[in-house]
């Protein structure tokens, strides 16, 4: 059952992703993108990452999509909806994307992941609630997925080696923020 739900989510992810890049109306595109992000967060749940799933929803659906909708509305006034949505190299783009996907599929298919049995291949119950996730942990999963705390430790405790990068990313975020304002600001002249 839960497997079926996963495949349904996966189908939604791919389909809405495709739609978000093919429909002509940019607002629809943004909405399909939000849907894709929701689907991806569902996939994250299947990977025992409840915290990251919620972060995914918060950031992508809540922030990035909203920013994109802002951008669309700021640049839309002159956009002609009847204009072609695709550029001249559409055919080659489809070809390149398809070939890359096929190559990736072939690579995955040939890899050892197909047959390999993984020791931590745990059985999952329903993924709709935290308790189910906890169940999975009790069934032998690593405690690292249990809560936010482990991730926080990993990111912030110096002995784990990511503390500096974490702080640095925060600086990057800040400078991106400032930079975005500077770039988007109206030219004084």
């Amino acid at each position: 059952m839960s497997n079926l739900i996963f495949y349904a989510i996966a189908g939604i992810v791919v389909a809405s992703g495709l739609l978000s890049l093919t429909v002509r109306n940019l607002f629809h595109c943004a909405l399909f993108l939000a849907m894709t992000m929701f689907g991806v967060s569902g996939v994250f749940l299947y990977l025992n990452s409840d915290f990251l799933a919620s972060v995914q929803v918060l950031i992508y659906v809540g922030a990035v999509t909203v920013i994109i909708i802002f951008g669309i509305s700021l640049t839309r006034n002159l956009m002609d909806d009847r204009a072609k949505a695709m550029n001249r190299q559409l055919l080659f783009a489809v070809l390149a994307a398809a070939v890359l996907t096929v190559i990736l599929f072939a690579a995955i298919h040939q890899s050892s992941f197909v047959t390999q049995e993984h020791p931590m291949a745990v059985t999952l119950g329903t993924v709709t609630s935290d308790t189910q996730s906890m169940t999975a942990v009790e069934a032998g999963a690593s405690p690292v997925f249990q809560s936010v705390g482990y991730l926080a430790d990993a990111l912030l405790l110096p002995q784990n080696g990511f503390a500096f990068a974490f702080e640095f990313v925060s600086i990057l975020l800040l400078s991106a923020l400032v930079g975005a304002i500077v770039i988007a600001r109206k030219d004084p002249s």
Partner: peptide, 10 residues
């Protein structure tokens, strides 16, 4: 692949 297509074609 879908993302690549979007980057290249839109």
């Amino acid at each position: 692949g879908v993302g690549v297509f979007g980057v290249l074609a839109r």
